[in-house]
Simulated assay, not measured.
Amino acid sequence: MIYVWTGLALVGIAATLITFRSFRPAPLPAPAQWTDPLPTASPPADLAIYQLPTGTYENRALFAYRGGAFRDVRKFAATAVLVRHPAGDLLIDAGFGADVEAHIATLPSYRRTPHELGATIRDQLRSTNYDMTSLRGVIITHAHWDHVSGLAELDVPIWMNEAESRYVERAKDAAVFRDVASRREIHHYTFDGPPYLGFPGSHDVYGDGSVVIVEAGGHTDGSVVVFVSLPDGRRFAFIGDLTWQLEGVTLRAERPRMLQILADVRPARVRDSLLQIIALTDRMHVVPAHDIHAYDPIPRWTSSNRRHL
């Protein structure tokens, strides 16, 4: 018995050391920057994007990326992005909804961190007399609760690919999505386009290159990156949860190993996609979904933006 106990103790000590080390800085190798021409895009002159913050929740940088500090308590964004296009508007993710307290209550207790609620997407749009018939749907980067809670108040199709449909059928972390989606139409799209900026498949939403969804599974089975090209030449990459904070890109810092195990379906795939995004940082602005400051270049939606397209 003493030998068994000693063996288990050694295993426990080794596991603790490995876990501790996984929080230390360990930058990924720097990928070669993308030097090929960017894909052709012809966005209409009046295409625009806006951020709609719906609230925040707290987390420590220690748990967000390797090298983060325990004392660095951050507000993680729950923000949607409205894409205004003459062929119909789209949202990227949906943020917190009116039932977010109930959605948070479904989480394990260790994941219920302090949070602040803002106005929902529906309330923000209604307060500016936005024409809801202009909204074609919501592209979800993936089906976790903090990206889909606000879908409950939006009577529009949810844009989702086949791999994410399979994920939501089985994953515990998709319980909130299953609840809100049971009352919504699902618009299934496929990656029917060519490889795009190093990603294996793509879907050109409007056919003009202005909004292109690429396959980037790994965080969930069908998680995606959404690339947006603006008329002034600026490009944005909305990367969902490939990394939770910009340091994942600027410092090439993955999630700590323990968090990879808890959060990612295929951590190696997340790493590959993150490196591909890092290779593009000189060519476009990268927006991790939960980094508040990543949204700074995007204007907020206000009543002055509600022009008819």
Rank of each mutant, 00 (worst) to 15 (best):
G240N: 14
P43L: 06
A26M: 12
D99T: 07
L246M: 15
G201E: 01
G218I: 13
T133D: 15
D72Y: 02
S223G: 14
V214M: 11
A14G: 13
S210R: 01
R307P: 00
I278G: 09
G12D: 12
H85N: 13
E153S: 10
D89T: 06
L275W: 00
R136W: 04
F191C: 05
G150V: 05
Y189W: 00
G137F: 12
S304H: 08
E162I: 08
Q33N: 02
H103F: 13
L8E: 02
M258F: 10
L38R: 00
G201T: 06
R183N: 06
D123G: 05
S42W: 00
F20M: 12
P25Y: 12
F70D: 03
A80I: 12
E153G: 06
V4I: 15
P195M: 08
D296W: 03
D296K: 03
N59D: 12
Q245I: 13
D272H: 14
T56H: 03
I140E: 11
P231H: 09
K75G: 10
A163Q: 15
Y167C: 07
V214F: 10
Q51S: 11
A30M: 11
M258E: 05
H103I: 08
F70N: 00
A77L: 07
H187S: 13
A181K: 00
A32E: 13
L309F: 09
T40C: 04
A41Q: 02
M160K: 03
H188N: 02
V265P: 02
W5L: 10
V214C: 12
V225K: 03
V156Y: 05
F76V: 04
E169I: 04
I213Q: 04
R252S: 06
D46Y: 02
G240L: 08
